[in-house]
Each structure stands twice: as C-alpha cells, then as structure tokens.
C-alpha cells in the first residue's frame, strides 16, 4: 500500500501508523460533557464498513503529520490523503 503524503510524496505503508476512524475522531464529545452514552460511543463504537472508510494515519516515519486517508477496506485502494490539523 502506498499513501501519497501531501508533504513527503507517495510513501510506503511501513512509514505510516494507523490512528483510527477519522469520522469517529472528529466526533469527540465536548470534554466537559459527561454524557456517558456519547463518550461510550466515541471510545468503543466503530462502524466496520466494507468499502470506503475515512481514517487517520500518522506519517510516523516521515513528517509525523496526521493525514485523513480515504481507503477502500475491500480493495485497499486509497482515494485521497489530506492533511489534518492547523492549516496555517
């Protein structure tokens, strides 16, 4: 698998670390909220789609930036890889 890092170019899978479901990570509940159901869902519930899946990968062996990678769980084909985090 090759991920096209927006900073480093197309790099081998072995340079990256999977960090979790992108949509789930984006849905982190308000830290001050103690809605147990929302936090349970955030920490434990995952969809397991056969097909397109948005994921966060860290280019841990490269620029160490986090990427939002859209990947097919069926073919492992990568549709896009975009940076997340501060844009400035």
């Amino acid at each position: 698998m090759i991920i096209a890092c927006p900073f480093c170019g197309p790099r081998d899978l072995s340079e990256f670390t999977y960090c979790g479901d992108a949509d789930n990570l984006a849905a982190r509940p308000d830290p001050a909220a103690t809605d147990q159901a929302a936090w349970n869902a955030y920490v434990y519930d995952r969809t397991n789609p056969a097909g397109e899946h948005a994921e966060i990968w860290q280019h841990s062996g490269g620029c160490r930036k986090f990427l939002r990678v859209v990947r097919s769980t069926v073919t492992h084909e990568i549709e896009s890889a975009e940076m997340v985090g501060p844009k400035a």
Partner: peptide, 9 residues
C-alpha cells in the same frame, strides 16, 4: 501529536 493535530488544532 494526535491531540494537537486532530483534536485541538
């Protein structure tokens, strides 16, 4: 790094 980039940019 994850906290800074993903949760609290």
């Amino acid at each position: 790094e994850l906290c800074l980039d993903v949760h609290w940019p």
